[in-house]
Write a protein that binds this DNA or RNA. Structure first.
Length: 507
RNA sequence: GGGCAAGUGGCGAAGUGGUAACGCAGCGGACUGCAAAUCCGCGAUGCACCGGUUCAAAUCCGGUCUUGCCCUCCA
């Protein structure tokens, strides 16, 4: 199946054809590291991570590059406030970035280039642009002359005149044209700076992405991604620099931009101050739930954040995860049971699963429509539940065989979206005391069901409480049974009664 | 002021010419202890509004209203 993707450059959906067979070279603009990442940053991360995973699923060899902007006005400002070295500050937040990204199941990029480590390459690019007469110098600053690049505006879809009409551009005497942008900034006292033919200074923001993407992926690489707020000026300027530098086009072939996360319909942004830090959200919500939320809307649309939407995401996600749990428990570690004759119903079940898989792939092939892909997973989940839940279901070897395959398939697809449930959490030592409290508080009611000697290990303690409850149920003491279940629930332990006894899980 | 999106059931959200996916909430049912959890089923005669094109429109065209985004560091 051919894949299609919306290309910001052509403003239409195009077939995605790799530059080299079965390979995809992707460059994604990473964060400026002066703070923890927020949910808006996370959206871009998760979206491009999902695109990458899907391409890999389709058999592409993906080279994935994501930069860190570690030289920047804000980093410098923040570092001055804290009285530390800017690069050290950036390094600290790069570390924090990895903690959050890893928690969100974002696969590591192949290369994480940093602006600070590519200064000579950047100076070289400026030099070439200067020698070509496209850039000019003024008081140690070097500017790119947009009038010298005829295609300026092709990404954002604006002419120079339209941009000027905005009248919000800086009036700067040193610029020959208000729309010219800085390639190299002359050093100011107390700021990090590097040697250059125009004196001490530091690179302009857009330069790093041009230099580093060309260096690691080469001219005309496949996909360049980022948030829509980067279309102008960042990506527009990247194109101008890079194509003026190399003298040919296109610098990158497909430009993919994701929509914003909003709060009360307003863009979540650092400058507005209405942002939510991923670190905090991870404290309250499992990473899969955050990922589910971020992928539940098409990547190009705005996504409104609110506690209600996350609650809904949690319930929605739990259903998908629960189906996987059921599959796990029924196939119970079996890898590949012996093949036997399939019943008619098992056969048609297998066929319907195949249809859902095709549905998922079609959705993802069409501009990475994760919302539609999730719908396919729900359809698949419904088929699975409908197959294994009825009383008349018999786990014959043949049925298990099918289910093992289905589990693998279902797991695979969830994995593309990064939605595989994390490792089952263990009962930590902190539970022991809380569980003992429950036991003690119910001692009178439970009478001889509760032994006087309580276990000293959390899991044994929980097993004991579950056993007590089972006995209470057997003698139809539902009051005690319910009270026990409620008490456990308050501690975050949920009991599910099944025909094979109670199963527990953590919220 | 200029440029660009979007407006779909109570809520969220797919669908860009052929008769409205999916999730949450709600309702009904199965299971059960008239429990929790879970599972299954049901839901828009209509897709902001008006007009037009077409055998056929949520989907194309024109107009109106509303909202958001970009034009400034930002994923």
């Amino acid at each position: 199946m051919a894949m299609k993707v919306y290309n910001t450059l052509s403003k239409q959906k195009e077939e995605l054809i790799p530059g080299a067979p079965q390979q995809m070279k992707i460059y994604v603009c990473g964060p400026t590291t002066y703070n923890y990442i927020h949910l808006g940053n996370a959206r871009a991360l998760v979206i491009f991570d999902t695109i990458r995973r899907y391409l890999e699923y389709k058999g592409y060899r993906v080279t994935y590059v994501q930069n860190f902007t570690d030289i920047d006005d804000k980093i410098i400002k923040r570092a001055q406030e804290e009285g530390i070295d800017p690069l050290q500050l950036a390094e600290k937040y790069i570390g924090e970035y990895f903690r959050d990204a890893d928690a969100l199941r974002v696969k590591r990029a192949d290369i994480y280039p940093r602006a600070s480590r590519h200064i000579p390459d950047m100076v070289e690019m400026v030099k070439v642009l200067y020698d070509k007469g496209i850039a000019y110098q003024e008081d140690g600053d070097v500017y790119f002359s947009v009038r010298k690049f005829k295609d300026y505006g092709k990404l954002s879809g604006r002419t120079l005149e339209e941009m000027l009409a905005g009248a919000r551009v800086d009036i700067d005497d040193r610029k020959r044209d208000p729309l010219d942008f800085v390639l190299w900034k002359a050093a100011k006292p107390g700021e990090p700076s590097w040697e250059s033919p125009w004196g001490e200074g530091r690179p302009g923001w857009h330069l790093e992405c041009s230099v580093m993407s060309l260096k690691y992926l080469g001219f005309g690489f496949d996909i360049h991604g980022g948030g829509s707020d980067l279309i102008f000026p960042h990506h527009e300027n990247e194109i101008a620099q890079s194509e003026a530098y190399t003298g040919c086009a296109p610098f990158a072939r497909y430009w993919i931009h994701n929509g914003f996360v909003t709060v009360d319909q307003e863009k979540m942004s650092k400058s507005l101050g209405n942002f939510f830090i991923v670190r905090d959200l991870l404290h309250d919500w499992p990473p899969e739930v955050l990922r589910f939320f971020l992928l539940s809307t098409h990547y190009s649309s705005p996504l409104d954040y609110g506690p209600k939407s996350l609650q809904s995401a949690r319930k929605s996600y739990n259903r998908l995860a629960h189906t996987l749990e059921s599959l796990d428990s029924i196939t119970d570690g079996e890898q590949e049971a012996v093949m036997g004759r399939l019943s008619k119903s098992a056969e048609s079940f297998r066929d319907r699963i195949a249809l859902c898989t095709a549905e998922f792939e079609e959705a993802m092939d069409d501009n990475f429509n994760t919302a539609l892909g999730l719908a396919a997973l729900y359809n698949m989940g419904r088929e699975i539940n409908g197959f294994i839940n009825p009383k008349e279901f018999v786990p014959t070897p043949a049925a298990i065989h099918v289910l093992v395959q289905v589990r693998r398939r279902y797991q695979n697809l969830l994995g593309i979206l990064g939605l595989l449930p994390g490792e089952k959490r263990r009962l930590g030592a902190e539970y022991l005391e809380r569980l003992r409290m429950i036991a003690l508080s119910l001692k009178d009611e439970a009478g001889e069901l509760m032994p006087s000697q309580l276990p000293a290990e959390p899991q044994e303690m929980l097993d004991l409480l579950i056993a007590v409850r089972r006995q209470a149920r057997e003698r139809k003491d539902f009051q005690l049974s319910d009270r026990l279940r409620e008490a456990l629930r308050e501690e975050g332990i949920i009991l599910d009664d099944t025909p094979r006894g109670a199963r527990w899980r953590l919220v």
